[in-house]
Amino acid sequence: MSESFSTREIMIAAAAREICDGEVVFVGMRLPLVAFAVAKALHAPTAIGVFENGVLRDRSATQPIVTMSDPPNLDGALACTGLLEVMSLLQRGRIDLGFIGGAEIDRFGNLNTTLTQGVRLPGSGGAADIASFACRTVIIMMHEQRRFQEQVSYRTSPGYGNGADWRTRIGLPGGGPSKVVTSLGVFGFTAEGEMQLESLHPGSSLDDVRANTGWPLLISADVGETRAPSIEEIQLIRRFDTLG
């Protein structure tokens, strides 16, 4: 018995599966927010969500939120601290997982959210800090060729730099990106810090992925299919993803 699902829904399901029980997660808005709620309801009931504005919560908000300071994100929180508090958690290595996104990504998982060929983007916000300090990050992106560049033209949030032991050499304490969840599949990173395809979403092909990736992509030896969202996952996603 299976239910049809959208690309957005499988991305949320895949992101939710990256959250382990008991972890402290730097959440963010939109898609990761839904993934966090789904993970809490299913396999990570004791995970704690941290927001840039200082909110720490171990229950999902019961109403849709547009900004992280909306009342439903404050109600029932464990604590409403401040930016300094959550930045300190990050720098002390107490954030297990941070979600980030970007306009462009490269083969070593570096992200650009600042500027591309003449186009001005929003800038870092806190993403550079999350990418530098979180024990690991999960990147969520639409998979399009213009977004998957061999090398980003501007590095907003560091991944594995130019590979190998780059992070250690320049003194970045966080672990770097562990997964990239895209509209076509799920990717991991080799020991050399290079992105590698791990699974294809149902309906997308290796050719799709190659055509939309701007460098010769590494493919894992045991590449499989991303597990389709279960009925339970789909129901939860639809319950929490009210803002579309």
């Binding site: 720098q91 870092s124 916000g125 806190g126 530098s132 300090f133 560091p158 992070r167 320049i170 003194g171």
Partner: peptide
């Protein structure tokens, strides 16, 4: 970026010529 902004504001608050921040190392 966010950490650098708060660090610069804090340097002003403490009347210091600078304060250090690690986030941004390895970026453009």
């Amino acid at each position: 970026e966010e950490g650098i902004l708060t660090t610069g504001l804090q340097a002003a608050a403490q009347a210091l010529p600078f304060l250090p921040w690690r986030g941004g190392v390895g970026t453009s």
